[in-house]
């Protein structure tokens, strides 16, 4: 048998942190390398008449952060995210409670639940655009009833266009979150519910005191995933509303798409991308804290 101390340089043996080097290189290659050029472009601007870019420092960020439209984009992104997370979570819990356990037919129902997730995003967005057609769309009829305005054209209305965009995203997100929560529910021992019932706990108390704390880590992971998708979601909104009416559904990802591909302002798009990345990292940190708290609580 070979002696590992012999095959490794003495310096590595003395400082075992060198063993992290391959993992760090791997991370650098697949994570930092693609992001680095994006951040670099965000600090540049094009030189007229050439394909070259020149250093611009933080000018693109200054331009965005002092622009009212960008602040609107950011506020809409937050609203979109909160809307999707806020509506998806209770629906997903209900669905997970319904399909958890080994009842007959739950396997088929789980497979059906995944259907919205496997439909290509642009296809589902176009279907939803049709559902909001004021002449024939059933969702349009529902919005008209809800708003009390029979002439409402949902995708031309600042508020209802955003509601419709959120409804579509909730429809896509619920299956994934449901799967995570259903997996979490299977780890909760039945004895806890039985004991709670003996103690006279109601359904809400059982959910609040047992289900929620014990599935919090699954919830955090699921929310992390759908939040990341929601933050990056440009194609479905673009296909449904084009960011309109006005700027009323133009979240940051849609703005990024327009800057890059409709207006050819790659440097500004890169700055938006970097800010979105920062928001994503912040969100990830928030969910990790939630996750750790859940871990320590359980």
């Amino acid at each position: 048998m070979r002696n590992p101390k012999r095959s490794l340089p003495a310096r590595v043996v003395a400082s075992p942190q060198w063993l992290f080097l391959p993992a760090l290189l791997f991370l650098a290659l697949f994570w930092v390398a693609p992001i680095g050029p994006g951040i670099l472009i965000s600090c540049q601007e094009p030189v007229a008449g050439t394909a070259m870019l020149e250093w611009a420092g933080l000018a693109n960020y200054r331009l965005l952060l002092t622009e009212k439209t960008f602040r609107t984009n950011a506020a809409l992104t937050l609203w979109y995210l909160l809307g999707v997370v806020g509506f998806s979570t209770p629906v997903a819990y209900l669905a997970a409670l319904a399909i958890a356990g080994r009842k007959r037919g739950t396997g088929a129902i789980r497979a059906l639940f995944l259907l919205p997730w496997v439909v290509p995003p642009v296809v589902s967005a176009l279907i939803f655009r049709g559902l909001a057609d004021p002449q024939v769309g059933p969702l349009a009829a529902f919005y008209q009833w809800l708003s009390g305005n029979p002439d409402l054209i949902p995708l031309h209305h600042p508020f209802w266009a955003m509601v419709h965009v959120i409804v579509h995203s909730v429809w896509r997100s619920v299956p994934v979150l449901t799967l995570f929560l259903a997996a979490g529910l299977t780890t909760v021992p039945d004895e806890l519910y039985e004991a709670a019932e003996v103690d006279g706990a109601g359904a809400w108390q059982r959910f609040r005191l047992i289900t929620l704390p014990l599935t919090r880590s699954h919830l955090a992971t699921g929310l992390l995933l759908i939040s990341a998708f929601t933050l990056q979601d440009a194609e479905t909104i673009y296909a449904m509303t084009g960011g309109g009416p006005g700027h009323d559904t133009e979240v940051l990802a849609v703005r990024l798409f327009r800057e890059a591909f409709a207006q050819g302002q790659l440097h500004v798009a890169a700055a938006i991308g970097t800010l979105l990345l920062a928001a994503g990292v912040a969100l990830m940190a928030f969910y990790l804290i939630l996750f750790r708290r859940a871990e320590s609580a359980s």
Partner: peptide
């Protein structure tokens, strides 16, 4: 915009249909 972004990315085409109203941007992009 495809012609312009492809040019920046070093991706070539040969014959390209274009719009007169976008010509100033083509002049600028080269």
């Amino acid at each position: 915009s495809k012609s312009m972004t492809d040019f920046r990315a070093g991706v070539g085409h040969d014959v390209v249909m274009s719009s007169p109203q976008m010509m100033p941007q083509h002049f600028l992009t080269g």
